[in-house]
Write a protein that binds this DNA or RNA. Structure first.
Lengths: 140, 140
DNA sequence: TACAATGAGACTAGAATAGTATCATTTGGA
DNA sequence: TCCAAATGATACTATTCTAGTCTCATTGTA
């Protein structure tokens, strides 16, 4: 099955949760883990990656926690997926064409590229301000 | 990195190769492996799966080999990917919504579904008659 | 009957996935 | 000053997936 990893799914829950808070409000990773059903030990790794990708800012110590590093309208599903999984390639040859011995005369390469463009476009449109608004409606 | 497996890439090479042959002509898996740079032992598994998915027909014995089970215009990248990888899900919750404890109120679920639709649409449009024609042009 | 081809599946090495656990570091407040 | 709360970094395990090799059975043609 072609799918993102579970960690990426958890990362989406973290960003969504933060996007639904009043702007600038911090919350601890443990609190998100509890409310969004993410394993407590795992969420640490997720938060670290999101921080490294500069999608969230973190503060340590008592009273610390995390918040979005920029407005939810400027963070999309694409950003989260790329932060967690690396490139959205579909096929390795799209990202590393040199490694494919056939790529010069390969008509399929072009098809993968087209499909990748369509997928990335869709994921880019899914910004977390929209997702958060929809979440409020659904009562999540 | 989000990507298909190498076996799926090999499967595309097999279908492309068959699509570029005169209609109805058979060729052995070994011959495809040689021309398309696929490991000889691996292509067996690929052909078996493509046969199980009814994308190719096989005949055993001397003079045997494989051919497309239907016109190349009726086989798309989507068919090959689904035959090899199973569902194109993007996220497990798209295929198995019951396994996600949050899905009832999850705004992200919808976004994954939209992205999946866009991706599948694109892969469905890439039929192997077009790919084969382009392959002839490129001299593959 | 001999040979050529696919069918089925066991086997290996290595990498990725999912989850747990530990210790260090930073910060705020009693 | 010291404790508790929080993240940072990373090691560890078990399981599954990936990529590839190999062997033997089965089928069909000459």
């Amino acid at each position: 099955m072609i799918s993102i990893s579970r960690e990426t799914d958890y990362a989406c829950r973290v960003i969504l949760h933060l996007g639904m808070l009043p702007v600038g409000q911090r919350v601890t990773a443990q609190e998100i883990a509890r409310q969004r059903i993410v394993p407590r030990a795992l969420i640490r790794r997720v938060v670290t990656r999101l921080g490294a990708a500069k999608l969230v800012t973190t503060t340590r110590g008592s009273g610390g926690g995390l918040a979005l590093a920029r407005p939810a309208s400027e963070i999309s599903l694409r950003d989260v997926v790329e932060a967690m999984e690396g490139a959205i390639a579909l096929n390795t040859c799209v990202i590393y064409p040199r490694e494919c011995p056939l790529v010069k005369a390969c008509p399929v390469h072009e098809a993968w590229t087209n499909a990748r463009v369509a997928l990335v476009r869709e994921l880019s449109q899914a910004t977390f301000d929209k997702l958060a608004a929809r979440g409020q409606m659904l009562g999540a």
